[in-house]
Design a protein around this nucleic acid. Sequence first.
RNA 1: GGCCCCGUCGUCUAGCGGUUAGGACACCGGCCUUUCACGCCGGCGGCACGGGUUCGAGUCCCGUCGGGGUCACCA
Length: 460
Amino acid sequence: MSEVRVRFAPSPTGVLHLGGARTALFNYLYAKNQGGKFLLRIEDTDRERSTDESTKAIIDAMKWMGLHHDEEIVFQSKRVDAHLEALNTLIKKNAVYKCYCTAEERNTAREKAEAEGGSYIHRCDCRDATNEKELPFVWRFRMPKEGETVFDDIVQGTIVTQNLEIEDLVVARQDGSPLYNFVVVVDDAFQRVSHVIRGKDHLTNTPKQIQIYKALDLPVPRFAHLPLILGLSKRLRSAGVESYRDQGYLASGLNNYISRLGWSYGDQEIFTFDEIIEKFDLTTVNRSEGSLDLQKMEWVNQQHIQNAEGRLLAKEVVVFLEREGFSVAADDAKLLAAVETMRARAKTLVELARNLKFYFVADDALEYDEKAREKFFTSVALDRLRGMAEALTSVDEWSEENISACINDFIGAQSLKLKDVAQPSRLALVGRAAGPGLWETMVVLGKTSTIARLSLAEAI
RNA sequence: GGCCCCGUCGUCUAGCGGUUAGGACACCGGCCUUUCACGCCGGCGGCACGGGUUCGAGUCCCGUCGGGGUCACCA
């Protein structure tokens, strides 16, 4: 069996949005699952709209997602010679013809067709004209007029198109520059692409391209057209992968979520990246289109935050802590410990970083939640906090066990219950009425900070 | 409008002629508990509609309706 070679071929006209990201991901997954190659081609022949910034943004986004391409990136704009050569082949084979029709002529014909309630398919006398004219022309492809074009789409099933329904598409502009449906064939053949995996919006291009493959005597690849992602609000639609990265998504979480849009593996929801690669199967991809569910996406990300290796999570969150104004080393022992106390409480890295701030703020700069302060910092409570602070000075080995024993002695001596002091102390230590368990919080904070914060607590 | 594709809880999905139609998110209860989470238990909620085929249809066929894609000298 020949090697599986797939490609992702974005046009660099904007950011890599989720739809494109999923196409790239599915290509990558299929390639890796099959032990094949994942190629990247930048379709930058539309000079008007293509930008270098966009190219860079797409490459960066893919890199972040972990979708590393094999072989050199192919820039379509650098392949015009090959395109022109292929065009020459078509000309020699009489597979294309000169069409002299003007834009006005086409427009009136189109309007007429639409007025009659049909669709416009360009047909003119140029195809059968025998005499050359000294007029501007485009090259049109001589589409078969009879029969049908059939292909077996891996996800969509058998697609049959009547050849009469396929237009004699223009293959090269008046200025001689080749057009998309033509160059995509030339380039896919050049890169020896075995499977074309792309969005379903390309479905109607496929029969045209198949006819071009045949005219050029090139092997026709297999096709797989992915259902589109619907229900994206305009804002979500335009949001690039990097905006999700900035919102605190882990690459593994984002990949997991978007892979499940159209693909599934029994009842399993959470997958590591390697697991998706191992289990991915194009033939089980759904035909129906799906839509984004931000809440579920967050939940999936949360699961990945919970499962992530501690050092990796710490490394990821450092950037977000930086944004909150805290500079912490990725391998800082306190950070590592702090992350462990908080990971179950964050859906995103942004949230995790915010929750972690209190560990790193100066003891006398800790701010208290106003509502909680009014509720818990009663004068009785504050007395108890100071008592606790004093009792804790006697703890030598600063462990959860010893801290817990010390505090229990303290409250036992006063016939109190843990409930009586838990929330006031939490507020004094964390600044909020919610947070990790007290003992673990104290351990991470350290003896000095713990005692300082308990003593510093004040009513308004 | 022509052509093409799709249609299971609100959302993502399992199902591949015989199931009490399963799971997940969200939502609502409860448990756990020093708070908030996490976790656990339970609940709500679905085969778009109408015809066939069949002993039997979410599963097969046709139609209707609904949704989407595409109809460039863009990619």
